[in-house]
Structures are given as structure tokens and as C-alpha cells.
């Protein structure tokens, strides 16, 4: 589905140049949910913007379904990290969510219904008539998520989508993403700095190094479905995976598996 080969990106030129991506290889299969974790400022957002076709990478290839990404690919949705700026302040929440649906050829009523449904799913029923700036940061973030979900893209890119919501809502949203993926066969790339979250929602976790970012390591998450906020997190396999990801993030040598299970 998504194939990133040796992706490099440098911001600026000359002595002030900043090497953000130092050759990233990444494959995401159809219907897979891949979590990307990495230290702050390593280049995660840069990776996502390149995949979305918003910046032209300095070097490397990005292929989506065997088509090279040049402009922005169709059938793609993004939840930006800076969610509050990605909502349009002159439109109500309902209009914000419904706007991209025009491209789906839906009528006015259908768009409205879809927006209302998506807003209810993220826990904001009846918020359509409000304006984004009337909502708290966490609520705005959920509107951005609702907009992406309502669009029903085949590829969904999310950049730290649950950063400013409370723990309870965060868990609900994680489950929502899993449910929606199941229901609509979406492929999802989710960037997060929360190691627990990366393991809980992911089929696979990709860890990036400090900038210039490369892939430090990948871990397959073979935890059973459906996942459960309490039960899954209790599993020894979960605890072990979490420790592994943590080690990769801290750029320590991974310890042999038995060590981890001893601790657990």
C-alpha cells in the first residue's frame, strides 16, 4: 500500500541546513496500522508531510499503491499535529467536518448527517453549530479527527492525534480508531510520542532515531484483537513490547527477551 524508500529531507541550504530525514525505509501493508515513535524534533512530522505530498523530499521515493507520490494523493486524510490551526475559524464545527465530503459527491443532507455521526463518534454529539474557537484544545483535536474519519480515506495519516485530550477520552479515541479501521478497511499511519499507545493501537511499531531520522528498529505487535484497554495492557507480551520500544527510543542496545520477562 505505502512504500517509502530511502527518504531524505533537508531544510534550508548551506551552513544553516538542517537534515531532518536521513534515509527512511518504511512499508505499510493494506489495512495495516503502523505506529511511528521517535524523540521530539526528530522528523516525524516531516515524514508525514512528505507522504501527504505537502513537501517535496530532497531524495528518495514514496509510492502509494504503486503510484509515485508527486502531488497530494487522492483518497488520503491527515490529522495535523497543529490541529487548532488546521480547523477553519470562519466555519462552524459541522461545516469543517462536512467540507471535504463535497468531494465524495454527497448531497447536502448526507454531508450533514455524516458530520453529525462522526462528531458523535468522537464524543462531541451536537457540537455542529459551535465554532472551533469556542471549544477547548482537546475538543478541537477531536473535531479534526472527526473530519478525517468522516472522509473515509483509504490512507489515514495522524500526527500525534491524541496529544491534548484527557486520559479517559484518549483511550476512547484509541478504541475508536481501531474500530473504524476494522469497519472501513483503512490503512493508518499514526505518529505518537506515547510508547504505550504505539503498542496498544499498532500492528507494528516503527521507532525513529534522533535527527536526522532513520529507522532505529521495528517491532511487530502480535497482541490479540479485539484489544481492551485494561486486559491488553496487562498482558506480559504488552509489557515486554513496551519495554522494547522504550529501549529503541532511548537508543539503548535491546536486551535479550528473557531479561525482560524476568522483570515482568
Amino acid at each position: 500500500m505505502l512504500d517509502v524508500v530511502n527518504l531524505r529531507h533537508t531544510y534550508g541550504q548551506g551552513p544553516s541546513a538542517h537534515h531532518a530525514l536521513g534515509g527512511i525505509d518504511l512499508k505499510v501493508a493494506e489495512g495495516e496500522l503502523v505506529s511511528v515513535v521517535g524523540p521530539s524534533g526528530c522528523g516525524k512530522s516531516t515524514l508525514l508531510r512528505s507522504i501527504a505530498g505537502l513537501i517535496e523530499p530532497t531524495d528518495g521515493h514514496i509510492r502509494i499503491r504503486d503510484g509515485h507520490v508527486t502531488g497530494t494523493p487522492g483518497d488520503l486524510a491527515v490529522v495535523f499535529q497543529d490541529y487548532s490551526r488546521s480547523l477553519f475559524p470562519w466555519m462552524t464545527v459541522g461545516e469543517n467536518v462536512a467540507l471535504p465530503l463535497r468531494r465524495r459527491g454527497m448531497g447536502r443532507a448526507a454531508r450533514r448527517a455524516a458530520a453529525a455521526e462522526a462528531l458523535a463518534e468522537v464524543g462531541l454529539p451536537g457540537a455542529e453549530a459551535k465554532y472551533p474557537w469556542e471549544l477547548s484544545g482537546g475538543m478541537q483535536q477531536r473535531v479534526a479527527i472527526a473530519r478525517a474519519l468522516a472522509y473515509r480515506p483509504t490512507l489515514l495519516l495522524m500526527d500525534e492525534p491524541f496529544g491534548s485530550v484527557d486520559a479517559q477520552t484518549r483511550e476512547d479515541l484509541e478504541d475508536l480508531v481501531l474500530k473504524v479501521r476494522e469497519l472501513h478497511r483503512m490503512t493508518i499511519l499514526l505518529i505518537t510520542h506515547d510508547i504505550d499507545e504505539s503498542v496498544y493501537v499498532g500492528d507494528r511499531v516503527v521507532v525513529l532515531t534522533k535527527s536526522p531520522a532513520r529507522v532505529a528498529g521495528e517491532l511487530s505487535v502480535d497482541l490479540p484483537f479485539p484489544r481492551d484497554q485494561i486486559a491488553t495492557r496487562e498482558l506480559p507480551a504488552f509489557v515486554h513490547l513496551r519495554a522494547e520500544v522504550g529501549r529503541l527510543v532511548r537508543a539503548k542496545e535491546p536486551l535479550p527477551p528473557f531479561h525482560a520477562s524476568q522483570q515482568a
Partner: peptide, 20 residues
């Protein structure tokens, strides 16, 4: 980011002009 959002959701030229 407004323009990027418009681009990602595939808004056409007219829509970008009048709505963004």
C-alpha cells in the same frame, strides 16, 4: 496549514478561493 488542509482533502481551485 489552512492551505495544506485544503490540499490534503483535495479541494479544487474555486473551493480554495471561496472557502479558504
Amino acid at each position: 496549514l489552512h492551505m495544506d488542509t485544503a490540499e490534503v482533502f483535495g479541494m479544487g481551485r474555486a473551493q480554495r478561493l471561496f472557502r479558504i
